[in-house]
Amino acid sequence: MSVLWVFLGGAAGGVLRYLLALRFASRDPARLAPGLIAANLLGSLALGVIARVTVDTGYLLWGTGLCGGLTTFSTFAVEVLGVLRTGRRLAALLQAGAMIVGGVGAAALGLWLGGLFG
């Protein structure tokens, strides 16, 4: 059964990420796609909350599944590579750093918010 929850959550998260990518696409190769940034920050915030308020099956559905499927590292890596290919190394470094700091900050905020409810 646990595999089913991960599948359903992952499918929903992936579709949400796809919709964000469509809605907030970018044509500037020197910038990370806004949809990707939104997906990773939103998912990190949500996982912080979920890590506090769910256990077992709930975590598999909402955490491993939904937040895991909503956020992505592979597209992040390819997008950073794309910025590097424009020759703007500093821009790539700064944007990757901002994603990391922003993601960790969002997760910390989520854990704090979850602690209020948990």
């Binding site: 990773n40 990190s44 912080g48 937040c67 909503l70 956020t71 597209t75 969002a106």
Partner: peptide
């Protein structure tokens, strides 16, 4: 690959 890789767990 988007669903396989993840950012949120790493951030937490």
């Amino acid at each position: 690959l988007g669903g396989f890789t993840t950012f949120s767990t790493a951030a937490v």
